[in-house]
Design a protein around this nucleic acid. Structure first.
Lengths: 201, 201
DNA sequence: TGACAAACCACACATTTGTGTGGTATATCT
DNA sequence: AGATATACCACACAAATGTGTGGTTTGTCA
């Protein structure tokens, strides 16, 4: 399944507005889109919709008011579940997206989208903190965190782990929640902070 | 906050249809409701909407197509989070509903509604299974379960606990996941099976 | 230069959709 | 008996909304 194709800035804006309105429960009419974006002609809006449909981002039903849908290619309000993260310097490059988790009001409150992702937990290094192999960890991206926070951290070998952040004499290190694992004093970079854990049986 | 007031069977049907359509993303038009329910006049549908609005279950915007909303009193696709459950014989009587969890596709798959609820976990009796104090346990109601399932069970003293179900020589008992707690051999009744655990930090 | 797409607008028109008025019939409660 | 609620229908009409045709301008690519 491919990802979102190239969009012009305005097309992006139109799409975002549609997303926003759908998120608020009621998809917009053509005229509502035009009004928001400052278009004086419904024809203009239809041109945009045509473009978005052609790019596979939007679906419509004929002659039905507000019948605008986003396709699966628009991962609206969804958080990617990642197996492996190849993390370059400034931004994460999601490599192995295993699926999506819907960012629902009650679990997370409506979040911004770009700053949250999910990790499938591997191994038992955090069992004593009640985080088991296979759990889904929801992470909020952040370049730093506080003492005792559980964080997703990038190690020197390009590996990502979930560990507890500890400060000792002003210096940070990582600790597992399992006596079988030694603390990590190597160089690392905090990617984000754990905000939620989900486990399915 | 009160609960759903009395509805006539037909009003119930209208409400359900609206719920269904909203769940499918696009609220219905007045004529669509009429068509579904077999009404030949739009006036009839408006009478029903008027009734539902008066009973505080529905909100509308004037002159806007499909602008039908459900109010908070209709807990659509939401699972009650329960503190204490007073469980009579056949049905649970939710006593202390602390809030609602949105039953989202990706966490639970679209579920039927009446057969799922959530418990806020108290105590540390399941820590070794990675279930901590304060976690939200999503339970699917069931009168029985299998060996090794974690279940919500009703004890003789009318208390509800989350424990692991064990069978030994054809006889079931409950086990904590914490050595400080002895197994429970008293009489108990299985209320439901644990399907998901959610923890927020 | 010509073709093409992006980015617009103006309108006319057809449908869809919401609104409003005015009915009928049945049952319940006072 | 009269008031009230449920449970419908038929229309007419107005507003909202989608469709379609035919433009203009600007820039890019070949």
């Amino acid at each position: 399944m491919e990802n979102k194709p190239y969009l012009t800035p305005k097309q992006e804006k139109v799409l975002n507005f549609i997303q926003k309105r759908i998120g608020e429960r009621l998809p917009p009419t053509i005229r509502e889109i035009g009004e928001e974006l400052g278009f004086k002609s419904t024809g203009t809006v239809r041109d945009y919709l045509k473009a978005l449909i052609q790019k596979g981002l939007v679906r419509r039903m004929n002659n039905k008011s507000r019948a605008i849908e986003l396709t699966e290619r628009v991962n609206f309000n969804k958080i990617p579940i990642i197996g492996t993260i190849m993390a370059g310097k400034p931004n994460l490059a999601y490599e192995e997206i295993q699926g999506y988790v819907d960012a629902d009001d009650l679990f997370l409150g409506r979040l911004g989208f770009d700053d949250v992702f999910a990790l499938r937990v591997k191994g038992d290094s955090m069992v004593d903190a009640g985080i088991l192999d296979g759990d889904i960890a929801i992470i909020k991206k952040r370049p730093n965190a506080e003492n005792n926070n559980i964080v997703a951290a990038l190690l020197d070998n390009n590996e990502v782990t979930l560990k507890r952040l500890r400060s000792k004499a002003g210096k940070f290190h990582l600790e597992a929640a399992n006596n079988n694992y030694p603390p990590i004093f190597e160089e690392f970079k905090v990617i984000g902070k754990l905000i939620t854990v989900i486990r399915k049986y």
